[in-house]
Design a binder for these strands. Structure first.
Lengths: 333, 333
DNA sequence: CTGTTAGCGCATTCAC
DNA sequence: GTGAATGCGCTAACAG
């Protein structure tokens, strides 16, 4: 199947110049006399010539495409990051190969390898956990890698996040200050560093500052899904929790709806604060208070950082922390 | 930046065979003696050789990547389709280059051209409107194209959808049968064929069958956003509508929340039925009744169809209609 | 400012 | 069953 019929050679012949010259005008090289430039441009137009990026990639060792590994685009959180990434990529003339990993370590390794075989110029990785095997693969390549919305507890890779620990600490403190003695912490898998190390740490620090002993019965490790959230109300009640810090919006929405459906009033009887500030927080009733994160920007900044890495520009900070905030809505008092 | 150091030539030398033989084993060609195959495989393992897909693409004229043009991945509807596409693509050893177009005709044309310059083997297009300029561009390429969740009123391109007209007609009929004399039709831009030609047609047909005159005051053309939905309550009330057929879930959620916030009870005082059955429908209160579409499958089937086109296999039907249904929830009586 | 010459890494005839 | 040769379409020195 011939996708492309006319080549740089055709326009060279037609314009009575060498292919080098055609290459120059196509690549915007200044060293071309305006007259011949115009001549070439006219032929390109006339022949409807379109440079073959694959050949170009082989010759130049640059593909102007970056690989993006994401757990699931269907998750609004990641979709927002992906959008930020794509916009900035487009801005810098890159395209993205998007792959869903389902946070599956094996898939991540596979996908990384096919991305590398396709000679992507860089990689943006989103994933809550980095297996040793994956780290090994990362280490084997010189292709620049940036983590977006994903921590690297080993402090090796460039990444952009918010300060999850501080954010959680602050909001749990607020919950406590408002009189909640028993604040639950409902999170995704604790083996994921972002939960088990960063967020949980913030939770514990807030308790400690308030002089409240840590009770692991108040920690609910889940799979981050809406469905699971809807089923949590009885368990939450049974440990006498009066508020919950939740690490995912869909999960939080599930909890809240589960509470409401069981007749528990939010926020009067139970306060909920969530973490990702996706647009879902505005769509449920009551609207959910949330830690705010600049989702789109996390993706955008990560991609911008990657362009610097790809162009060998200096980067002043590998661990970029973007500002977070709190959006008070109706699920907290 | 050398992403790849060792080539097919290195393994050929190291294994004391020709590069042709290495190429054969890499590509699973049967004409290789098991012994030499093993020898080569061992060297590949030892050298950690990874075929360069770009070079392969240039030589074979196949990139095993397809371009996907989507209005916005941040929209759950499209994210679901994209997920289906990626999964099937992966299944058939393809990768996807994902690009957001914002339904902007100019961007679509640009993106299409860069996709083609990158020699993608096929394209999946999602977009509610196809400008003439875009059709022109489509026409100029031999690269297979499939529309996913996007109609082609000119009946030229392969596509997979549900029968939007029939679905809307059916649900509007139900609304009328339940006693609603004035059913509003709230949709996205009417210049988009899917709204202006398919869905609106179903709405009109339902009215006609019921002997109710068409009143264009009941048709609300919007931009499909949640925000817009929240502002629609006064207008809807002013035309004495008692129910609405809505073409987008976020839009519908906005309308519903707008109603609730204004003290209008859904579904008692106002019935709402939406169209995309994204998970949002379950998360809002009351849960929204919706036309159901197999979102993931639309993407999956579209990608499957594209593989057939790319492999020159026969396709029996260019206009694939997947089954739709109705999920009765709480926003209708 | 422009042309010539080499490859980039691999698939693919065509011989052997 | 295996190797040698050629070219995919383009960029990148290197001359001139």
């Amino acid at each position: 199947m011939d996708k492309q019929t006319i080549t740089i050679y055709d326009v060279a012949r037609e314009a009575s110049v060498s292919m080098a010259t055609v290459s120059r005008v196509v690549n915007g090289n200044a060293n071309v006399k305006p007259a011949t430039r115009k001549k070439v441009l006219d032929v390109i137009e006339k022949l409807d010539y379109r440079p073959n990026a694959v050949a170009r990639g082989l010759a130049s060792k640059k593909t102007t495409t970056v690989g993006v590994i994401v757990p699931d685009v269907t998750n609004m959180y990641f979709a927002s990051l992906a959008r930020g990434i794509d916009d900035v990529a487009t801005m810098y003339k890159y395209n993205i190969i998007l792959t869903n990993s389902d946070s599956n370590g094996e898939k991540e390794v596979n996908v990384l390898n096919t991305l590398l075989s396709k000679q992507v110029d860089g990689i943006i990785f989103m994933g809550n956990e980095i297996t040793d095997k994956l780290r090994e693969e990362f280490k084997r390549t010189k292709t620049p890698i940036v983590f977006a919305g994903s921590v690297d507890e080993q402090n090796i890779y460039a990444r952009v996040n918010i300060d999850y620990t501080a954010a959680v600490q602050e909001e749990v403190k607020n919950l406590i200050d408002r009189g909640n003695k028993r604040v639950a912490f409902v999170c995704g898998p604790l083996e994921q560093a972002i939960n088990g190390q960063f967020r949980l740490k913030g939770y514990k620090q807030a308790l400690k500052s308030a002089g409240i002993p840590y009770d692991d019965k108040l920690v609910f490790e889940t799979d981050d899904t809406y469905k699971t959230g809807t089923l949590l109300q009885p368990a939450l009640m049974s440990v006498n929790a009066t508020a919950a810090m939740v690490t995912d919006d869909e999960l939080a929405a599930g909890i809240m709806n589960g509470m409401s459906d069981a007749g528990v009033k939010v926020p009067d009887d139970f306060e909920i604060i969530t973490s990702n500030d996706t647009k879902l927080t505005e769509m449920v009733r009551p609207k959910m208070s949330s830690i705010t994160q600049p989702l789109y920007d996390i993706g955008a900044v990560a991609m911008r950082l990657l362009t610097k890495l790809m162009h060998n520009e200096p980067v002043d900070e590998k661990d970029v922390l973007l500002p977070y905030g709190l959006m008070k809505r109706e699920s907290t008092k």
